[in-house]
Amino acid sequence: MNQTVSTNDPTTIASDGDGFVLNEEDARAIVDERGHYEQPQAACIEALKIVQRRHGWVPDGAIPAIAEALGIGVAEVEGVATFYSLIFRQPVGRHVILLCDSSSCFLTGYDTLYAEFTRHLGIRFGQTTPDGRFTLLPVCCLGACDRGPALMIGEDTYGPVAPEDVAELLEGYE
């Protein structure tokens, strides 16, 4: 990844060959986040999330742009961006479904619920529906074990969800 622009003003940062340009508002938010910590590196995860909120995912070109905005190495940002499960490095659907596959949900019907999602959407974990509407992912115990099986769609948490609820539940998300 070649950085083609070098400037100290984070609001005007362009980026590498992908043509990714950090949105001005996002660049300011990232610089603002930096102020919460002793070292700029600490704002890295939040910076990735800021980019993801705008684009839905984190394109490769965002990595050097974030590195530049924070004044840290590209490899450091890349290392972080590839570690965390909620940072998406490829395009995802408009709504990300996080289906809890941990023990309590496993014991209360996760298998049949997952089967219904794959049947209804025609996708497995890690895939996106062809219309770009939904991406299906597994997630660590959602802390909703008293109402398993549980899941999230975007920022909304649901549980318990029965297989017969799936079709109607998804209708709420265009």
């Binding site: 919460h36 910590y37 070292q39 700029p40 590196q41 600490a42 704002a43 890295c44 995860i45 939040e46 990735l48 999330k49 450091e76 290392g79 972080v80 570690f83 965390y84 499960s85 909620l86 940072i87 997630v139 660590c140």
Partner: peptide, 23 residues
Amino acid sequence: HTGAGRYICGEETALISSLEGGR
């Protein structure tokens, strides 16, 4: 400070690594 997934962040020292913006 909100995280971005990964159970291991709950381990005391891994949490500090994550807080500092690393893996």
